[in-house]
Design a protein around this nucleic acid. Structure first.
Length: 634
RNA sequence: GGCCCCGUGGCGCAACUGAAUAGCGCAUCAGAUUUCGGCUCUGAGGGUUGCAGGUUUGAAUCCUGCCGGGGUCACCA
């Protein structure tokens, strides 16, 4: 039982003892900044059950807690808010109880698996900024769910067949002159993407030509020879035509290689791949099953539908009258197939843009109606578009921000900034490149993940992404700085033995100059001694109090496990990002305001070093949940 | 038009799912280094939370109606 729960039950006890009433719930929240206290109990809701003056009730409960809960040191009541102050030793005990901050807050893996689908690209064009958002979200949510104790299978369904694929195949066949990634030095996905664009250009030309012959736009679109040829190619593919299938395999192979490079560069991976060419025929057996269960019905023309009007939606087609599958059929089939393949899967997350909100609403509803146990644990991780200042991104019109270009551009910006600082002049070129990429990616990932997925992002490539303030590099910088301190701490204690290596002339004047005024100026709420006997790392300096900045840091560290839990429940990397920022901001304030290595008292110094180290571990751990690496130096 | 999502200082975002004086970053202004990394820190100015009602002891948050932006209403995926 954690303290939160303990306080809750003690408050209930207090109310039942004093007022002979039973509280259903107790509202606890962190104390507001400008009031003294750590946790605040809100009295107002109790008034429904307990009659009286909120302030008096708060006072009575406070006194009860003071006597019965050892962690409670004092309290104050403001209006209907009971502000509870916890003792320093409570925080120290917590801090000392954590064995390893690098795994702190992570829950051991349970048996139930969650399948997370993300990326799911078409194989006719390279990945762009929109995919980047998708991939970052999917990967991060996977990591968060893992940390919260889920077994996670990362997967994607690759849209590797269909008319759009045939378009780039046809264009390559006609205009490609046998070009390959090797012969051109282009990444495979880029090469294929170029032919997709080429097809469209040719198609448009033909449409114009037909229009000038007096055809309407509609007619021209249907009659253009090149589109007919593409359709013919699709028919051949479906019939298993050897040449077409060979070409299809060859070109998709190029694309996959290109994709893998991009994924590797972004730093994401997958456990399983599903290909639409394998799954597009799935789902028909489910249709029959659905008819038997009366979930689906047949219309006069033989097409199969699902009636969702009772649920406030409309009727949805699930199978064409010629017996061929539609998008919904495939998704039904694929979902069921996934559980067949991996029976431990108890839920799925689909990372797909919000233009498909309706589709997934319907998909989930149908699966529920069909009675699958796991259908209650489906979540559409829906996210808004990434817009450019020029408007929407359109592959065919070349108005996209290419993922690979974007990554190298971010690294370039990182280089420019890094070189000014000049802290890594002794790095080799490769080390530098790696670092720039780490920082550039950190900026990009954080920029995208810190905002609510539902919101649209306007991405301006001109302005590039910030490196100061609430950004990835700011947090990476703080981590690197802590590492610098830890290196120094290690070298001083190893260097001269442990006896007196620390004074060395610098600490004396510094300690005097800075620590005294700060300690006094900000320590208003403190002034009490904690029992130094009961803790391994206590502070027995002259004052005998924990510095408010230290206490605040520990307080934030303590919130990490619940933050992971909350982020997992809400599928929200943004919560992790914001948490990390709060932690870092607090550390920087701590760092700026009180000495660490220059601390005179040895115990206190060791404590501060350990605290810094813990902060660094948590930064690293939290950033790993976002898929962002942190450098030892930068 | 029906349904869904979004609207918070100039800009970009928060607000622990209904609580105290709505926080933070960028930008602006004023300060801080005889200290461990100044990509830092301390402070100031800047808000009738799109508008109007309603519920509540209490609303950015819940309900209703508008306004603005986006999405979706395919036998495309």
């Amino acid at each position: 039982m954690n303290l939160h729960q303990k306080l809750e039950s003690e408050i209930k006890k207090a109310v039942s003892k004093i007022y002979n009433a039973n509280l259903e719930t107790v509202e606890l929240q962190p104390t507001r900044k400008d009031f003294e206290g750590d946790i605040t109990a809100v009295v107002f809701p109790m008034l429904r059950i307990v009659k009286g003056n909120p302030a008096q009730i708060g006072e009575a409960i406070g006194n009860y807690l003071l006597e019965n809960v050892s962690e409670v040191e004092k309290f104050n009541v403001v209006q209907g808010f009971l502000n509870i102050v916890l003792s320093d030793s409570y925080y120290l005990d917590f801090f000392n109880s954590v064995e390893d901050f690098s795994t702190f807050g992570h829950v051991p893996q349970g048996n139930e698996a969650l399948m997370v689908e993300y990326s799911s690209p078409n194989t006719n064009k390279p990945l762009h900024l929109g995919h980047v958002r998708n991939v970052l979200l999917g990967y991060s949510v996977s990591e968060i769910e893992k940390a919260a104790g889920k077994k996670v299978y990362k997967t994607q369904i690759i849209n590797d067949r269909g008319i759009h694929i045939c378009k780039s195949m046809l264009a390559w066949e006609r205009f490609g002159n046998g070009e390959t990634p090797d012969s051109t030095g282009l990444k495979g996905d880029k090469l294929v993407g170029n032919y997709y664009v080429k097809f469209d250009q040719e198609y448009k030309k033909q449409i114009e030509a037909l229009k000038s012959e007096g055809k309407t736009e509609e007619e021209a679109k249907v009659q253009a020879p090149i589109i007919k040829a593409a359709q013919e190619m699709l028919r051949k593919w479906e019939a298993g035509d050897e040449d077409v299938v060979a070409l299809w395999n060859k070109m998709n192979g190029w694309v996959y290689k290109g994709f893998e490079e991009t994924y590797k560069s972004i730093g994401v991976d997958f456990d399983f791949y599903y290909y639409e060419s394998d799954t597009y025929l799935l789902g028909k057996d489910i249709i029959e099953e659905g008819i038997k269960k009366d979930v689906f019905f047949m219309k006069d023309d033989g097409s199969i539908w699902c009636d969702l009007t009772k649920e406030g939606l409309d009727e949805k087609l699930v199978l064409r009258n010629d017996g061929t599958a539609v998008y919904m059929t495939q998704d039904l089939g694929t979902a069921v197939q996934r559980v067949k393949d991996h029976p431990d899967v108890g839920g799925m997350i689909y990372t797909v843009g919000n233009e498909q909100d309706y589709h997934f609403k319907v998909l989930f509803l149908i699966l529920k109606k069909l009675g699958y146990a796991w259908a209650d644990n489906l979540f559409h991780l829906s996210y808004g578009m990434v817009d450019l200042p020029s408007g929407k991104m359109k592959s065919r019109e070349g108005t996209v921000v290419d993922a690979d270009d974007l990554i190298s551009q971010m690294a370039e910006t990182a280089r420019e900034i890094s070189e000014e600082l000049g802290k890594i002049d002794d790095f080799t070129e490769e080390e530098k490149e790696e670092l720039y990429k780490m920082i550039g990616l950190g900026a990009l990932k954080y920029y995208i993940l810190k905002v609510d997925p539902k919101k649209r992002i306007l991405f301006n490539p001109e302005e590039s992404v910030d490196f100061q303030g609430n950004t990835g590099p700011f947090i990476q910088y703080t981590y690197a700085r802590i590492q610098s301190i830890l290196r120094k701490a290690a070298s001083t204690s190893i260097g001269d033995g442990t006896s007196a290596p620390l004074g060395d002339g610098t600490s004396a004047p510094l300690g005097d100059g800075t620590s005294a005024p700060l300690g006094d100026g900000t320590s208003a709420p403190l002034g009490d001694r904690f029992p130094s006997t009961s803790v391994t790392l206590s502070i027995d300096s002259a004052e005998g109090t924990m510095h408010p900045k230290e206490k605040k840091l520990i307080k934030i560290l303590q919130q990490y496990p619940e933050t992971i839990q909350l982020a997992a429940e809400n599928y929200s990397p943004a919560l992790i990002a914001n948490y990390t920022y709060d932690l870092v901001k607090e550390f920087n304030s701590f760092y700026q305001n009180i000495p660490i290595l220059a601390t005179q008292n040895e115990t206190e110094k060791a404590f501060r070093v350990k605290l810094s180290s813990a902060v660094a571990e948590v930064i690293k751990s939290a950033f790993a949940l976002l898929g962002i690496q942190v450098p030892e130096r930068m």
